[in-house]
Amino acid sequence: MNLSFDDGADLDDIRERLSSPDAGIRRVAVMDLIDAVDDPDAVELAVKGISDSDAGVRAEAARVLDEFEGEDVIAALLSALTDADETVRLAAAESLAETKDRSAGPAILVWLETDDAFVKASCLRALRELRVPESQAVALEHLGHAEPTVRREAIGVLAYLKDDNVLMALMNAARKDPDPTVRKVGVGSLVFSKTDRAADALVEALGDENWQVREEAAFIIGKVALGSAVSPLIEAMNDEYWQVRVKAAGSLGRLKDPAAVDVLGQALSYNISNLRKEAAAALGEIASPNALPFLQVACEDVDPDVRKIARWAIDQISKNP
């Protein structure tokens, strides 16, 4: 019996299996490298696996490489992004996105010069976490790429850098991108605009044709406390999607403008209880005595959550001098 590290890897044994003519055996050997991340010699074997003739072996190598660090690892993963086999490509992209090593930035940036949209999107995704300033210019360029996935990741890189100078570009994406998912991400990225510089784009997004973009805009406006957006939010309380109205109600609460009391009070009689609950909470945040008649009715709501929040809201109003 062996009472220590009973599945610790024996690198010599792995090395030997890696030279087997049988692809299955090589594949299992690569998988076993996961038990050897503390062994400096293991990296080389994992990297070698990326150029194996068998796609299964390459896929396992791409997976296990996220355990290792260094130039060779990044280079191997980048090259695997163009592998003939899709599983290998996807695994490589996933492992690449795990890297936290900022010195990998330049190597990844080089690969953004290729034409392949998958490679570009994967590289941008990996760059996002690294937050290296050099990626800003490249990301800006890619906001105009034909593929939505690439544009989406480019926004990610820019938003993680939180540089006010690119706000215009992000606003543009939020407003004009032809793809609704990209517009939604664009709207979400504006959350770092602590001034009202992004106001136009956010308000415009409240009228987007896609409800999820409108929902995101209604939410972000509250998060950045965009005081100038109260009337558009009040208008959004008539949105055909209750989900948008819920977020608008929440944001009106954050903005604490008594002008919203009526529209929120009316929302207390909508048939979706999630919305009634949010509206009651918003009235509590605003804490205006004008809301009392609405809230007293809400204290008898069929939904206990609405009743509870209404009681809390009344309490807030009574505490408000």
């Binding site: 599945d7 299996r17 049988d22 299955g24 594949r27 299992v28 050997a29 998988m31």
Partner: peptide
Amino acid sequence: CIADKGCSVCVD
């Protein structure tokens, strides 16, 4: 299944 190649991941 490639257990015959030394795989025992599921068992592990």
